[in-house]
Design a protein around this nucleic acid. Structure first.
Lengths: 223, 223
DNA sequence: CGACTGCTTGAGAGTACTCAAGTACTGTGG
DNA sequence: CCACAGTACTTGAGTACTCTCAAGCAGTCG
């Protein structure tokens, strides 16, 4: 089964009672699949926000722009993840594909016409919103109280956990990482170099890494 | 009508169809009211999280502690606000009363036994969760990309907007503000002094202030 | 009135930023 | 297959902003 672990967990939690349909099947039964090429915008900041999205294949970043050009990446989303969940009349962030991606889209207000499948998806959406809020709180702690070194360590640990394999690919640029962590691109680069020098991670090229000291890395992130 | 604006908006959005019951009435019909004195803990970090809370009177802070004592205040909640919404098996934050407060509490999983009122409250909870996520994204932007001066300005503007009166009370200490904004208490103090010197706000004592230049303050916050 | 707690102010240190140069990938054309 | 251009990433030097440590000042409660 090719369904990633984090997706399976989410689906299980949503429907602990027997004969469940996997998350992506519920969504694909209702949503429309769209293709986006690398860098393409999926929705814009201040767009109307009655849509919900799920990454089918590829990776997505949700970014928020300030008037003077300062940028913040609210989060990265991978296959199976729901996004565009922030409420309000309009989206607070825009979303762009990091690489060529397939995205499922559905209109939130029309879910009620889809009977049980619609209800199930609605529950999945709310559950995902709650989890997203929890993750946002973790990220606020990281931004508010952690050093650059800890932030980059935390980010790499997070990517590694999500991908769950020995070698992990970074779908995003250093600039994206910097804007996610509230740092500059130079500082991110320096911290990656430092983490490597300290033997916590090993790089292969600049978009591929391996966690070399899982325990020490976990300690650093938890601290 | 003494219901604050932000609460009215929320209730209207949740039940645009005629004969609605105000948020606090829906909650008080189901929830149990509890009293907490200043500083008292409402729930602890890592407590089981099947409860939802609403501030009836007073003010609450949600805080998150790191192993080494670093603290982050995820948010402040005032009369009418729902809190404890972050998902997961346990709360990601603890909540404490900032002053003597009355708090409504209800068990999330038991809402289904309350018929229509339970459903309505459930919808309010989900809506509040979405809004909370939006606010969390705003706050991440503030933490990641704004200067100390802008952060404190943003915080005071936010408090003023919520209270909606000429003079505003700060229910929380400088330490709480610092931990919310990812700064030190000294820096918060310096920035407040600076904002005052620049004529953006006027202080009366250290817990009471007035916005002196609303437009300039708004510009600074938006920028 | 004095002690306590919370807030403000000051001086010096440190972390992350800015600006600038250099290096490594990636893709394109010869 | 290699040379070149363009982009992305890394490294370096100096600066600036916020933190740390320390002292002084208010507001509050006995």
């Amino acid at each position: 089964m090719s369904m990633p672990a984090f997706l399976r967990d989410r689906a299980e939690a949503a429907a602990p009672v027997a004969q469940m349909i996997p998350t992506d099947e519920v969504f694909s039964a209702i949503g429309v699949s769209m293709s986006f090429s690398a860098g393409e915008e999926i929705y814009a900041q201040d767009d109307e926000s009655d849509m919900v999205y799920q990454v089918q294949r590829g990776a997505v970043r949700a970014s928020r722009l300030l008037g003077d050009g300062r940028r913040q990446i609210a989060g990265f989303y991978y296959a199976g993840d729901l996004f565009g969940l922030e409420a309000g009349p309009t989206h607070r962030a825009s979303a762009e594909a990091l690489c060529d991606s397939k995205i499922l889209v559905t209109k939130r207000s029309s879910l009620k016409h889809y009977g049980e499948a619609g209800e199930r998806l609605e529950r999945l959406i709310w559950r995902a919103t709650g989890q997203e809020l929890g993750r946002a709180q973790d990220h606020m702690m990281l931004l508010a109280r952690k050093s650059a070194y800890e932030r980059v360590a935390g980010f790499l640990a997070d990517v590694a956990k999500r991908q769950g394999s020995a070698w992990n690919e970074l779908a995003m640029s250093r600039q994206d990482i910097a804007d996610h962590l509230g740092l500059t691109i130079e500082t991110v680069s320096r911290m990656v170099t430092q983490l490597q020098a300290d033997g916590l991670v090993a790089l292969e090229g600049c978009r591929r890494f391996r966690v070399a000291a899982p325990v020490r890395l976990a300690d650093l992130v938890a601290a």
